[in-house]
Computed example of a mutant assay.
Amino acid sequence: MPALDLQQSSVDITRAICDIPSVSGEETPLADAIFAALGEYPHLEVIRDGDTIVARTNLGRAQRVAIAGHIDTVPINANLPTRFVDVDGEPHLWGRGTVDMKAGTAVQLKLAAELTDPRVDITWMWYDHEEVAADLNGLARLARHRPDLFAADFAILGEPSDGQVEGGCNGTLRAIVRTTGMRAHSARAWMGENAIHRAAPILARLADHRPREIVVDGLAYREGLNAVRIEGGVAGNVIPDRCEVEVNYRFAPSRTPEEAVAYVRDVLDGFEIEVVDLSAGARPGLDAPLAQEFVAAVGAEPRPKYGWTDVARFSALGVPAVNYGPGDPSLAHHDEERVPLAQITAVEQGLRSWLSAP
């Protein structure tokens, strides 16, 4: 594998790291390349935990900022290698990971290499397993192994935000809602009890549910409660005795995880419910002085983050955090994933000017 050259442009670095496939669970080649590249810079203390790489400045500054990005992607679907494309007259880089979130990671890698005298000390973090279950998350693993590395006054996550600042994030809950019945031959259906039919009220309640919009610290977060998977059935001639509906609840950061669980149980009262994944949201964090300085420096209008991101991990540790990265979030995981080249360079310039300011 060719060496990663961090002296290239942030666009070229984006293309280079996108063309190193790193689907969740297969991040090692990219982590190896990042670790080797950063080892060339004596102003950085470089630490590795599995496929998570940390690079720190230790300049004795009065404040420290953590800047993080994940290096894994969802599965590839004939959208690598990357290529340059024109969209409405604007050049883009097309391919898996360009939006979520290797463009943001590339910007961070370039700045980590080049900013030898920043205004604050910086802890750069690039981590694995973000796109899968929370218990595999590399940032969570790092927090268990090295909680000291999370000491910071402010944090920025390079998740795609169209080059704007998105404060906080929604929480997320996944639950399995089950119905049971009794098997019988489908030619004698009256001898059994159809578990799939019994799931109809679950779907009806979800279809009738109206998501709420909740204002938190001046930003309006839209909630959502939806069925995302249904599974049941034994064979083409058997009445099913079991059905599972997987439900995803995206809740405003004003709710605690416990309140989110109680809300889902209330909406689906009367059914067996097993919560299988639960992550708290994060309040916007825009009242922190460093956050206000950052927003002013990049000239952004803060918006809410509707999806869950790892800003929640920093928030849980008492570190205010925002999302700031190139790419349209609606194209994350899309087969036509692509990022405007101008956004990559604009985010680089925004971070560079703020981190370099006297």
Rank of each mutant, 00 (worst) to 15 (best):
R48Y: 08
T98M: 01
V298Y: 07
D328R: 08
E130P: 13
C18S: 00
A300N: 07
G299C: 12
D128I: 07
A312P: 01
V87P: 01
A200W: 01
D335P: 15
T123I: 13
L290M: 15
V215K: 02
P340C: 04
A316S: 02
W126Y: 14
F314M: 05
H185E: 14
W190T: 11
N77K: 15
P2M: 10
V245W: 00
P81K: 01
A113F: 04
L139K: 06
A357M: 08
V132M: 13
A155S: 14
Y221K: 02
Y221I: 01
D266H: 15
F251C: 00
V298A: 13
G89K: 00
P358E: 13
L59T: 14
D328A: 11
P289C: 09
A31W: 00
V322E: 05
T73Y: 02
G158K: 06
A288V: 13
A55Y: 05
Y263G: 08
L109Y: 05
R283Y: 04
A321Q: 10
D12R: 13
E131S: 12
R242E: 10
G168F: 01
L225C: 05
V267F: 12
T82N: 03
R255W: 12
F84K: 10
A252T: 07
L351V: 09
A220Q: 07
A103D: 01
R255M: 10
T345S: 12
D86T: 09
S356Q: 07
A189L: 14
M125P: 11
R198Q: 01
V319T: 08
V132D: 11
Y127Q: 06
E159S: 09
L290W: 10
G171N: 03
V275T: 13
R96P: 01
A260I: 05
H209L: 13
Y249C: 02
A134F: 15
I176T: 13
V54C: 11
T345L: 13
E26D: 15
A260V: 08
L173H: 07
G95R: 00
G25C: 14
D117Y: 08
L351N: 05
G69H: 06
A55K: 04
M101R: 05
R83S: 03
E231T: 15
L149W: 08
F150W: 08
L331T: 01
N226G: 13
Y263L: 11
S279R: 14
A204V: 00
E159C: 07
R250F: 09
H209V: 11
E114N: 12
Y41T: 02
A296G: 05
A220H: 04
E246P: 11
A342Y: 04
W308S: 02
R255S: 05
E45Y: 06
M1F: 09
S353M: 11
G318A: 04
A346D: 08
A175W: 03
N323L: 07
I67D: 10
H70E: 10
G181P: 04
W354F: 14
D310F: 05
W126D: 05
R61T: 10
A140F: 04
L59D: 12
A235L: 10
G270Q: 05
E272Y: 11
D241E: 13
V99K: 03
K102V: 02
L219N: 00
S279A: 14
G233F: 08
E272H: 12
D266A: 15
V267Q: 10
N248M: 15
N137Q: 13
P320I: 05
T14V: 02
P253Q: 00
L30Q: 04
V298I: 15
N226A: 15
G95K: 01
R141I: 07
P340G: 03
D121V: 14
G285I: 08
C243F: 00
D88A: 02
M191I: 14
